[in-house]
Design a protein around this nucleic acid. Structure first.
Length: 392
DNA sequence: CTGCAGGTCCTGGTTACATCA
DNA sequence: GCTGATGTAACCAGGACCTGC
């Protein structure tokens, strides 16, 4: 499905100034074995200006792309929004949103790798990481020693109570393993005597001792967020193995990683929508201004026509399409033979018959001040037709 | 081959909590 | 300390898709 709004000179087809709403079939190829990620994405493409085939193809918003294209778009995002959100409707490059982390990715925290590269074969656990999903193994904290049961989603994703007991023990284990490497988790796990013991349960469960649902949140640290952002730059979606691996890397529950990615996608989409709305608003304002200017110009011409007797003798002028070269020309519908001066030439149009094209709107007054619409004044049967001579 | 149930994951919307001015 | 705004982690509902029977 494609909705196209074409503005301006129709001789340039719809690619001149156009907005597109495309319902494209997009296949997420983040993983060959993850067929769940094949989705039909609603892609809202915007392009203003003289588009070429390449620019019109990639459009503005491509929320769910395959990962290769996503990487390309991410790179383009940085370019297109490098001017601090300065939206220029005359720019034919679509507006893209840059949602890079506000702060640079810090140096490896807890010996986390600076750059994260998912292995193309995420299903392979033969790299010694033992199910690490191709992630680099964080030095200094051996994920292999983590209680596997505590990290796995053993029940429905929404069933947080089921993982409570296991996770609670997990974090104590983690404290023993990683020591104070993760200060916040250490405190969260109750390792800090004067800390916040209730936070441990908030990370691990939403239910208190009485089983009452007391949903508490614990904000992710900057390092964790930055690490997730890096992962998000690599993949906007995660397959289960990647999710588990990332959870192990960050000492979080896979459910938390999953929720973070869901919320992150939602935020990206929301921000992009805001940018799109702002962009369309600017374009609307520009078109409104253009429309107002044209109306004003039309009124001036009409006033000039009524005040100047010479113009009163002018017949109605229509635009015609030259069949030989398909260029737009102005012709008169009267038998009178006015002298029409266009672009410095004087032409007698008395012998020119009217050949009005259906594609050209009729009744448009002759705008002598806008000679760009009238590159020539001769018509088909005019022997002085420069294009006929050129064609023959 | 078709239909159904169960599971998983997604999006969109909402809620609840943490943080900050 | 209180309060409203804001950001965001977490949840929920519904749909799409896959798998097994």
């Amino acid at each position: 499905m494609e909705l196209g709004l074409s503005l301006g000179d129709n001789t340039k087809s719809a690619s001149s100034k156009s907005f597109f709403l495309s319902k494209n079939n997009i296949t997420n190829t983040s993983s060959d074995d993850d067929n769940h990620q094949k989705k039909n994405g609603l892609v809202f493409c915007m392009a203003l200006g003289i588009n070429n085939s390449s620019s019109s193809g990639r459009g503005g918003v491509q929320e769910e792309q395959n990962n290769e294209n996503q990487e390309e778009n991410d790179d383009d995002d940085e370019e297109n929004t490098s001017e601090e959100g300065n939206i220029n409707c005359t720019n034919n490059t679509p507006v893209q949103l840059d949602l890079l982390p506000l702060v640079p990715v810090p140096a490896p925290h807890r010996n986390l790798p600076q750059s994260l590269h998912w292995s193309s074969d995420n299903g392979s656990s033969e790299n010694g990481s033992s199910g690490n999903g191709g992630l680099p193994v964080a030095r200094g904290f051996d994920v292999n020693r983590l209680p596997a049961a505590g990290m796995e989603e053993v029940s429905s994703p929404n069933s947080v109570a089921s993982s409570f007991r296991m996770d609670f023990g997990l974090f104590k284990s983690c404290v023993n393993i990683i020591g104070v490497g993760n200060k916040r988790n250490f405190e969260s796990a109750g390792g800090n005597d004067g800390g916040e013991p209730e936070r441990a349960s908030s990370r691990a469960s939403d239910e208190d001792e009485n089983g009452v649902n007391t949903r508490k949140k614990l904000r992710l640290s900057k390092e964790e967020s930055a690490y997730l952002e890096e992962s998000f730059k690599e993949h906007h979606t995660l397959n289960p193995k990647q999710k588990v691996a990332l959870a192990k890397q960050l000492n979080l529950r896979p459910r938390q990683v999953e929720v973070w990615f869901q919320n992150r996608r939602a935020r990206t989409k929301l921000k992009q929508t805001e940018v799109d709305c702002e962009y369309l608003k600017r374009c609307c304002e520009t078109l409104t201004e253009e429309n107002r200017r044209l109306h004003k110009e039309l009124q001036e011409l009409r006033a000039l026509k009524t005040s100047n007797p010479f113009y009163m003798q002018l017949p109605a002028t229509t635009l015609t399409m030259c069949p030989s070269c398909e260029r737009v020309a102005s012709t008169t519908t009267s038998t009178a033979a006015p002298l029409i001066t266009v672009t410095g030439t004087t032409t007698n149009t008395s012998k020119a018959p009217t050949t009005t094209s259906d594609s050209i709107p009729k009744g448009i007054p002759f705008l002598n001040s806008r000679p760009r619409f009238f590159p020539f004044t001769t018509t088909t049967n005019n022997p002085n037709h420069p294009h006929q001579s050129a064609a023959s």
